[in-house]
Computed example of a mutant assay.
Amino acid sequence: MIPRARHFVAAALSSALLMLPAFTGVADAAPASKVFAVPLAKTLSDVKRVAGYWRPDRLKQADNYSPATPAAAAAPTTSSAAAASGPGAPVAVVKQATAAQGVAPVPPRKGTARTMGKVFFRFGDKEYWCSASAVAAKNRSVVATAGHCAYDSRQAKPADYWIFVPNPGPNGETPDGIYVGASISMHEDWSGKADYDYDYAFVTVHRGFTWVAKDGGYVMQDVGRLQDNVGGLGIDLNEEPGSYTVAAFGYPAGAQPDGSTPFNGKTLRKCPERATRFTVAPGRDLQKGVELQPCDFSPGASGGPWLIGYDDSRRLGTLNGVNSLTWNRDAKGRYDAVSSPYFDTTTGEVYRRAAGLTTIPNVT
């Protein structure tokens, strides 16, 4: 028997969901593709229905909702769980290298980038939230987050009332707008098997809006496309773990293993840059996850970006992962690592599907 101090415990970072059901079908996928696509708000009336749910009074309570947290599970208890083998505005520019490939980051039309924020949504009759980020794309309208922050694999059902709020204020403020989800693009093994090797989603969003007070109530005011307003992170694919360093970001809020709550979910946090390595957890169907240690993120940070080459002055970097699982590798009182799915060529296929969609021209 392995001593307790050496047990490795993994939990999803960001609704007690996710078992491993049989695959139930593809909503929109080419025969040779691994992309599973699910529509969210398709029409103007759909957008207004979602917007009407997230009125200012509800958004003021948003930080009191639950950070989405699929049920915890033990990882392997042997050392195999350790390292293993607007007009005129810029648009995304594709770059390619011999092994890696990706998309360059893009600044907003005005000011400094503000790409990171939160997604709010419902599963059933309960509200949840996660972390997320805006990604550079030709449609200027893509958000990256964890798969479990957009789709419930147990019920084979997407989240309801899904919105992205970049740069959220501590009391429900939405200084850079509210963006209603139009469509989720993900890997079929997330939707069908809850395979944490593919716990990522790229959500195409509609044009943003803000609530404006009028005649004793509120009306929606269109504010334009996401990327134009806040910029977009780049994307980097097929990097070899250990050959680069990343910084992880998110809005952690949940309790640590010892019950303490050092984070309040209202402040964007950063785990300092570290080299990554592969990690394996068969109990989570995780064979090629990438681990960052040390990092004490807790629930709420799910879906937050992993960035290469983050420039603090421009607040831009290149996306190479998203927070998926948090780890208590030494079985002590605090989480000490976080892992992401490995971003490879298939991830690029999922991203390109999200980046190629068009949305309705006006949300008001």
Rank of each mutant, 00 (worst) to 15 (best):
A5D: 15
K48G: 11
P76H: 05
A11M: 13
S80I: 05
T78C: 04
G52R: 03
A97S: 05
F120R: 11
V135R: 03
A71D: 09
S80W: 02
A74D: 12
V50S: 06
F120K: 09
A82M: 07
S131I: 06
S66T: 09
G102R: 02
A37D: 15
A29M: 04
A32K: 06
F121W: 07
L59M: 02
P67D: 11
K95V: 00
A22P: 11
A10Q: 14
S45D: 08
R55T: 13
R122W: 06
A62R: 14
A10C: 06
R6G: 08
V93K: 01
A72K: 05
A74P: 15
V38G: 12
R58Y: 02
D125Q: 12
S131T: 06
V35R: 02
A73W: 10
R122H: 05
M116V: 03
K118C: 02
P39W: 06
A11V: 11
H7Y: 13
P107L: 04
L59I: 08
T112V: 09
A81D: 13
V94F: 03
T98I: 14
T77H: 05
A62G: 02
A22C: 15
K34T: 06
H7E: 12
A71M: 09
P90C: 03
A97I: 02
P31N: 03
G111S: 08
K126E: 10
G88R: 10
T24N: 11
P31Q: 08
N64E: 08
A32S: 15
P31H: 02
T43N: 11
D125W: 01
S14H: 12
S45Y: 15
V106G: 04
S66G: 13
A100D: 01
W54K: 03
K110E: 11
A75W: 12
L18C: 14
A97L: 01
V9N: 07
A27N: 10
N64P: 12
G88N: 11
A99R: 10
Y53R: 03
A37H: 07
A11D: 09
F8Q: 09
T115V: 00
A100F: 01
E127W: 15
K48H: 08
S15K: 14
S131D: 10
K60Y: 05
R114I: 06
R55D: 10
L17W: 09
K48A: 14
A82W: 01
P76T: 04
A113C: 01
G86H: 12
G25P: 08
P67W: 12
P76D: 14
M19D: 12
Y65E: 15
A92S: 05
A16H: 10
K48N: 06
R114W: 09
S45H: 08
W54D: 07
V47Y: 08
L20N: 07
A11G: 09
V26E: 13
M19Q: 15
A83P: 11
R114N: 04
A5C: 14
S85W: 05
P67H: 03
S79H: 12
F121E: 02
Q61I: 08
K34V: 15
K110L: 14
S33D: 07
A73P: 07
K34S: 04
V26C: 15
A68S: 03
A92V: 10
A16V: 07
W129Y: 14
Q101I: 02
